[in-house]
Amino acid sequence: MESYSDKVMDHFRKPRNVGAIDDADGVGKEGNPMCGDIMELSIKVKDDTIIDAKFRTFGCGAAIATSSMITEMIKGKSIQDALKISNRAVAEALDGLPAKKMHCSVLAADALKKAVDDYREHRKAL
């Protein structure tokens, strides 16, 4: 098929952190402009650190794997550090993606930015 790396297939088979956090501090929903796939990421934040993250994704194998991977990567990170994670970094953490599938990883990075924006909005409102 797509010749995905073992890591991608592992995250596709056993995606980590699937779902939505009930009392999330920030939720980001993003559509992929290239193919129309959708990812929703919710985060729980304490003292500016992401203590929990969950995702739901409508998309290809790469989209699901990058979604799963980014939840793992941001957990325990400060908001600032989490925002430094690029889509490239997510792809690298999965031992790479086929060239045709690089655009899928943008979805995860964008959803994260949206979730953080949402979190900051909420905090401002408080």
Binding site: M1, G59, C60
Partner: peptide, 8 residues
């Protein structure tokens, strides 16, 4: 749901 993930 999306087709590629079903195919995989």
């Amino acid at each position: 749901i999306e087709g590629e993930s079903i195919l995989l």
